[in-house]
């Protein structure tokens, strides 16, 4: 019913062919997916992109077989603390990073294959009351953790064997950091957002906090996903999972904000919103952004209606929709590395791989 209404309501953007279903991961264990990701994996001299799926108690590695079929290679069992999310490490190989905890992240572990012992294993990287974490290029992991007295922001460089080679403390802002985003085009810069709705920028080499700027209340409860450096400006992609619908922007999933680090001034340049009157906004109302992911200039989000919507963030244009399927609502969506498409999962159902 929803699918039938999409085409006339969203006439200028989303077309079915923008997302092409390639395959479905059939998990015989019946466990509910909490996250999906991709990882470079090298075995027998062959380096390929593999899929990683996580349930609350296990993480599975899938390899491509013939005819768009995927087979499970190995499952790490993590029964003591629930898995919350997979943390992508953009250019690492044979390493999977996961966050575990109850309501908040309590520990971060690396899952890997050890050729020395010819076995799969996992090792602890960090524990604490972890508020935000991001994986960066060159096997670096940045996290913020909080005690009653203070906040710690730390970058860990991971070794190929899952240990930590080096730890660098970054200067924390006063407010709690809610998210980090790597800066495309600047290896040593890192962007973050705070609970008080500020954007912060660090120098990862020195640990200095270079700038903190409040982005205003037009964009409440901002979470940064990605940043791009261009012509002396940072273009930061934000989402607002806890925001109410605003009169100025309607039902917004993503904002692109231009931020001038030199002056500390910022300005919104593009909104990616749901078109008013979309059936995606119909009951269960109010339909809002739940969670999302950004790759290159494409943003994908799961809405409370159970649909996945994809936007071209540069134009603020909705370009593809996956309506809730008869078997259930979409619960998570992630871009694969290297432009390998979109992954979408249902809470009690399969994970599907789409070409975009």
């Amino acid at each position: 019913h929803v699918a039938e209404q999409l085409t006339p309501v969203l006439p200028d953007g989303p077309r079915e062919e923008n997302l092409q279903l390639m395959s479905e991961l059939k998990d015989s264990s019946g466990s509910c997916a909490v996250d999906v990701s991709t990882v470079w994996w090298e075995a027998a001299g062959c380096r390929e992109l593999r899929v990683v799926t996580a349930s609350e108690s296990s993480v599975s590695l899938w390899e491509p077989l013939t005819h768009n079929h995927w087979g499970k290679v190995y499952t790490w069992q993590l029964r003591e603390i629930p898995v919350i999310q997979i943390i992508p490490l953009p250019d690492s190989c044979n390493l999977v990073c996961v966050a575990l905890g109850e309501l908040e992240i309590g520990e971060i572990r690396i899952l890997l294959y050890s050729s020395e012992t010819d076995s799969f294993k996992h090792s602890l990287v960090k524990t604490g009351n972890i508020k935000a974490v991001v994986g960066l290029k060159e096997q670096r992991l940045v996290s913020s953790s909080r005690t009653l007295q203070e906040q710690q922001v730390e970058m860990v460089s991971l070794s190929g064997t899952g240990g930590s080679k080096d730890r660098q403390t970054l200067m924390p802002p006063k407010e709690t950091v809610t998210a980090f985003a790597e800066v495309e085009g600047m290896k040593e810069a890192l962007v973050g957002t705070t609970a008080a709705n500020s954007i912060v920028v660090w120098n990862l080499r020195t640990g200095q906090l270079l700038r903190k700027t409040h982005v205003g209340y037009s964009y409440p409860a901002s979470i940064c996903h990605r940043a791009y450096s261009d012509s002396g400006l940072l273009f930061v992609v934000l989402s607002h999972p806890h925001a109410e619908e605003s009169e100025s922007c309607g039902n917004t999933a993503f904002h692109v904000v231009a931020f001038n680090p030199s002056s500390g001034r910022s300005r919104g340049v593009m909104c990616s919103c749901l078109p008013p009157g979309s059936p995606l906004l119909m009951p269960p109302c109010p339909c809002r952004y739940l969670e999302g992911d950004v790759w290159d200039t494409a943003g994908a989000a799961v809405l409370t209606s159970g649909a996945v919507v994809v936007w071209d963030l540069l134009w603020g244009r909705c370009v593809a929709v996956l309506p809730p399927s008869p078997t259930g609502h979409w619960a998570l969506t992630r871009w694969a590395m290297a432009g390998a498409g979109l992954r979408a999962g249902q809470r009690d159902g399969p994970v599907r791989l789409y070409r975009y």
Binding site: Q208, L209, L210, A258, N260
Partner: peptide
């Protein structure tokens, strides 16, 4: 965005802010 909106833009902002910020 015009320069008047966002203030003076510097292509070397990262180096300049790193030189000014507390270590």
């Amino acid at each position: 965005c015009s320069e008047s909106d966002l203030g003076p833009i510097s292509l070397n902002w990262f180096e300049e802010l790193s030189a000014e910020a507390p270590p």
